[in-house]
Amino acid sequence: MTTLTRSRESGPHAAPSSSTALTGTRRLLRFGLRRDRVRIPAWALSIGGLIAYFGAAIPAVYPDAAAMQTRAEIVRDPSGAFMTGPGYGLDDYTPGVMIANEVLGMIAVAVALMSILLVVRHTRAEEEAGRVDLVRAGAVGRRAPLTAALVLLLVANLAIAAVLLAAVLLAALLVNDLALPDSAAIAAGAAVVGLVLGSLAAVTAQLSEHARTASGTAGGLLGLAYVLRGVGDAAQPGGSTLSWMSPIGWAQQTRAFVDLRWWPLLVGVGVAALLLTASFGLVGHRDVGAGLLPARRGRPAASRDCSAPRV
């Protein structure tokens, strides 16, 4: 490659004095909102719709208290607990308790998936496609794309929490089990899981050159989080230490509709803050388009299996 340069005296334009690593964040955030203006509401309404439907279905599936109690005995069993939650309030299984114990885990996974895909789509995928080269050619700071993506993550999870709150309230209303703080804890719990896994994706996006690897790694850890709380919840009623190793566990440990406590969500907020800080540190230690982990090289020549397939 040959490079030719043509330099002239600097024009009348003085360098902007206020240029920082965050310059351009606001514009990028507006652009991100514009790109996801359909996607985020679609996720929120789908997940919210699922909860509302669940609320509407409960009276049909479990017509009386005896039927509810039969269900409680199923999820009390270790195999039932593995698939659902820690099992608070099983002795008086109301529809609200059921939503907290059985539905929260599922919607938390959905919100986390949305968050992982969102963060990777706006960070590593843009770099892999080479679009960040065009963006960063402008007056855009080194950390601006990541910052814009993380603010977008926050906006998306707040939107989801609002829709989920409305959905849980609607579901609770349908079954006469209305409780505002407990409904809010469920919505906030799902959003906190989204924030933690989204922040985790911000870290994996710094490690790999490829968007698929970044979202795959974060998605794998999400699966691990579900299994950890499953094993922990199966081990003993109310969950054990393993349940507390999982972000989904923190959301379920608020004991919504039974004996509400908020502090487990603070654990999630704290971990999300740590991961965010880590991703901010890491983004300053690499080139645009490069990952912190080197891309693996392959074989220089084909192996026998590849070059001479046996028929």
Binding site: L4, S7, R8
Partner: peptide
């Protein structure tokens, strides 16, 4: 006013167009 850095894709472009530098 622009300062310019160009990498031409072909050899003839390099010779035909007279960039300084």
């Amino acid at each position: 006013i622009a300062n310019l850095v160009v990498t031409p894709p072909t050899l003839e472009e390099l010779f035909v167009h007279h960039y300084d530098g």
